[in-house]
Amino acid sequence: MLQSETLSLVRTAPTPDVLEEFEKQVKTYEKAFYHFAYRLTGNHDDAEDLTQEALLKAYRAFHRFKAGTAFDRWVYQIIYRLFIDQYRKKRRRPFVASLDEAPPHLDQEKPKDVPDHSKLPEDYALRYELGETIQKALLRLPEEFRAAVVLCDVQGFSYEEISNILQCSLGTVRSRIHRGRRQLREYLHPYLNGERGKKQ
């Protein structure tokens, strides 16, 4: 894997134009890629690794990228594939956790990373809490449903675009989104019917 990467990197010596074009494209969508990776993985470290790896893969295959087609969809596809591969590997590996550290879901969203758009601290706390709860609920979904729901509701893609990214049929996309949302509805039931949900 690494060998083939190396060879292709060496063989296709990047001309300054190609590198510049790639950088320009990446800078445009950088935050969106990271957001997608974060919603899939649920923590900053994994999201950074996933984004970096996907960018490296995209760079390696950039000569195959057709100008005029959607660069972001192409990279989303790479991120999704990498995520599925890693997820399968992780599932086979036993989970090892340190007793000294806090559980990963408790220190993922750091307060300094959340921009404060509201003036009231109550609103900020509510939004923060809801964000945490939604992320936890997303992580409970199967990875295929999670990717489809995030691409549809967070990134705002149409079903056809999602079917291109996930490389599956429109019917599958529709089914995944429907089943993902139905599961989210069960997990977020108190927020949807309680006072908290209504305030939002």
């Binding site: 935050k31 969106a32 990271y34 957001h35 974060y38 919603r39 900053h44 999201a47 969203e109 990373d113 959340v114 921009p115 939004r127 809801l130 964000g131 939604i134 992320q135 729901v149 995030v150 509701d153 967070v154 705002g156 949302r181 989210l184 509805r185 977020l188 927020y191 949807l192 939002q200």
Partner: peptide, 11 residues
């Protein structure tokens, strides 16, 4: 749910 997901702050 769609509204909540759409209003998530990008990290």
């Amino acid at each position: 749910i769609k509204k909540y997901l759409g209003s998530l702050e990008p990290p």
